[in-house]
Structure formats: structure tokens, C-alpha cells
Computed example of a mutant assay.
Amino acid sequence: MNASEPAAEPGSTPDARPPVIGLTTYLEQSQTGVWDVRAAFLPQSYFEAVTRAGGIAVLLPPQPVSPVIAARVLDALDGLIITGGKDVDPARYGQDAHPATDEPRPDRDAWEDELLRQALARGLPFLGICRGAQMLNIALGGTLHQHLPDVVGDTRYQAGGGIFNVVDVEVEPESRLHGVLGAQAGPLQVPVYHHQSIDRVADGLVVTARTADGVVQAVEFGSVPFGVAVQWHPEQTAEDIRLFAGLVDAAREYEHDRKAHA
């Protein structure tokens, strides 16, 4: 699918069976009208990209988790997106918290960790976005740089104030990521908003994109048909849904194969 090419409406043909894509969410104190309560939420740009790519978006808020609960959830999905959000608890990769690291969200960390582990085990197509890439690396035994300004010397990756910077990323030519994005001359320009990044890459992951200063911007898990995680925010570029379309296509094949072997 080209960046400018609109996706077909889900269910627009008799044989169409849109794949179901689960997206993890925030769980934070939130205000709306007279209410000020803890609430699960996700920016519309995430699930709108899924529906434009031809999938059905289902939100997965943090909740008590066990292997049985995670398996029951994943049984109903054809694809999974681990979305952006607060920093992962550094205790999960054996470090004390940096002063700039967010207050831990153990409920979300545990929820996404179990979903990811089981998704990998069953070959479920998945896409990690920002925190999602970091969560994947940690789940498989890798570590993070907790505060990139200590590494690169400035705030080029997170300007603050909700402003996304645009950086140039070099994509490995033989990667699945390159295949999804298609051939293009020169680096890929992507929107970023992260003050952490992958440090030690976990076993089983391959780095498939970096910025010129060496910061990891994408990894892939080659043991599944579609296992891509990017440090940038593709949902912020509404005109370019190629990553979401790649996931939805893989999810459609997964669902078809599951039906065939049922």
C-alpha cells in the first residue's frame, strides 16, 4: 500500500474479513467534564491508523494478568500493537532509576510483558511503537539507556512540551522494515519523542534502523512472520500508514492460516 493510497473500507467486499488488532493503552489519572479518575485511554491516532489500514482496533487496558488471561486475550487477536507511553521500570532490566525516569507503572509493565512473551511464542504478528520497542527488548533480556541526553549530549529525541522532532533514520536494506516501507532514496524521516532507547540488544532481536549517532531506532524478531518494533511514532504521520498496513496484512494471513488449521 502506498503512503497516499487510501485503505479499502473494512468489510467492503463479500470475502473481506478484517483482522482484529489489539492495542495496549495507558492507565492514568484523567479529567473529562466533572470527572477526575484513573482511566484507560489511547490517542485516536493509533487506532485510526489501524482502521485505515483495514483492521479492527481493540483496546487492551492494563489489568491483572496471568498466563491464562493473556492466552485468552491473544486467542481473540490476529495482531498486537504495544504502544507508546511511560518509561518501563528499570528494575526489570537490573538498574536503579535515573532521576529523569518516570515513576514505575508495574501494572502496565506486567500486562505487556506477558502479552509479548505469548505473542512471540505463538507467532502472532506484532508492532512495537516507542515504549513498545523498549518493552520488547527488555522482555527478551536487553537493557536501555535511561536518559539519552546523557549519551548524545542534547534533547534532539525529546524536545518536550508534546512537540515531536523529526530525525533521519537509516533502514537496513535486507530487513522486513525496509520491505514494508518500500525502496526510497536516502534516509527515512520519522517523528520522535523519546528520552530513552535500546542499549544492549536482546538475543533474538536484530537492529534494522539507526540514526547517524548510533541510536537504535528499530529492531525485528525474525522468528515470527511480522515482528517489528520502532522507536519512532508512525501514528503521527497520518498520510503514511505503511507500517500499520504491513501489520494488518500479516494479521490477515495469520487469521487465514489459523482458520485453515482449525
Rank of each mutant, 00 (worst) to 15 (best):
T83C: 15
T83M: 14
G84Y: 05
G85L: 03
K86E: 15
V88W: 12
V88C: 12
P90Q: 01
A91Y: 04
A91K: 13
R92T: 15
Y93V: 03
Y93E: 09
Y93H: 05
Y93I: 05
Q95V: 06
Q95I: 02
A97G: 12
A97L: 03
P99K: 08
P99H: 04
T101E: 07
D102R: 07
E103L: 12
P104C: 10
P104K: 10
P104S: 13
R105H: 11
P106A: 07
P106Y: 11
R108D: 10
R108G: 04
D109T: 09
A110M: 09
W111V: 05
W111A: 08
W111Y: 10
E112T: 12
E112I: 04
D113Q: 14
E114K: 07
E114Y: 01
L115R: 00
R117P: 01
R117C: 03
L120R: 00
L120E: 02
A121N: 05
A121I: 09
G123S: 01
L124V: 01
L124M: 02
L124H: 01
P125E: 03
P125A: 07
F126M: 06
G128T: 04
C130K: 03
R131Q: 15
G132Q: 02
Q134T: 08
M135V: 14
L136K: 11
G141N: 03
G141R: 00
G142F: 11
T143H: 01
T143S: 14
T143A: 09
H145E: 06
H145S: 03
H147T: 10
L148T: 08
D150Q: 04
D150F: 06
V152Q: 07
V152T: 00
G153K: 01
D154S: 08
D154W: 11
R156W: 00
Y157F: 10
Q158E: 14
Q158H: 15
A159L: 11
G160C: 06
G161E: 01
G162E: 02
F164R: 06
F164W: 09
V166C: 07
V166K: 04
V167L: 15
V167T: 13
V167C: 09
D168H: 06
D168R: 12
V169E: 08
V169N: 05
V171N: 09
P173T: 13
P173C: 02
P173S: 08
S175C: 13
S175E: 10
S175F: 01
S175Q: 11
L177Q: 11
V180M: 06
G182E: 10
G182W: 12
P187F: 00
L188S: 12
L188M: 14
Q189S: 15
V190Y: 05
V190H: 06
V192A: 05
Y193F: 11
H194W: 05
